[in-house]
Amino acid sequence: MNLIEVNNVYKQYKNGITALSDINLSIAKGDFVFIIGQTASGKSTLIKLLYRQEKPTKGEVYVGGINVAKLRNSKVYKIRRKIGVVYQDYKLLPNMTVFENVAFALEIFGLKRSEIRERTMQALEVVGLKDKFRSMPDKLSGGEQQRVSIARAIVNNPRILICDEPTGNLDPKTSLEIMEIIDKINKDGTTVIMATHDKDIVNKYQKRVVTLEKGILVKDTPKGGYTK
């Protein structure tokens, strides 16, 4: 079985809007997949199904062999510990330092202080923010905040890194810097799934591209660019 299997998935919201229709998708270990599409095409919904922030109305979503669609609320943490998620709005805790924001993802495992410190600093080194570990998030630029978010997502060595429009709030130069980091993480063996509508990035990296249109998967190109 592939690392991620999405079988015949439908998602209809309570307000009646159908976000996804009959989605079938397989992602192998080590893949880098762009999920592209217009606004309201269903990219974010598909991404949210993977880390169980949303449940499908119908169908199965297997992540690492677990059907996350059937996971109870109280057990969701089990799947989230295997996945690192990077959000467009960074989702950093404003009253915690950079170090604390990243270390938090390890503290939940009850690791020793020394191990937490070591792994947190390593993650911050990967994103190039080792020297800003004492800073508060509001003292950082958008790009730096997104790097902290990436460090938090990878500090736990997840098998999958999910990025929901990670460059959506960043300028082109910073976006490319962020992409370099994500690409390196993928090259080190982590499977990356990234929702984006940044044409330049998709065209530059030439990875697998899954295109959604009005909730339907219309194209799945092994090495593609941003096409309508």
Partner: peptide, 16 residues
């Protein structure tokens, strides 16, 4: 609320 949401998203269990 935001803090709790983020804690959940990074994999903290409900009891944690």
């Amino acid at each position: 609320q935001r803090q709790i949401e983020i804690e959940r998203l990074v994999g903290a269990s409900n009891s944690y």
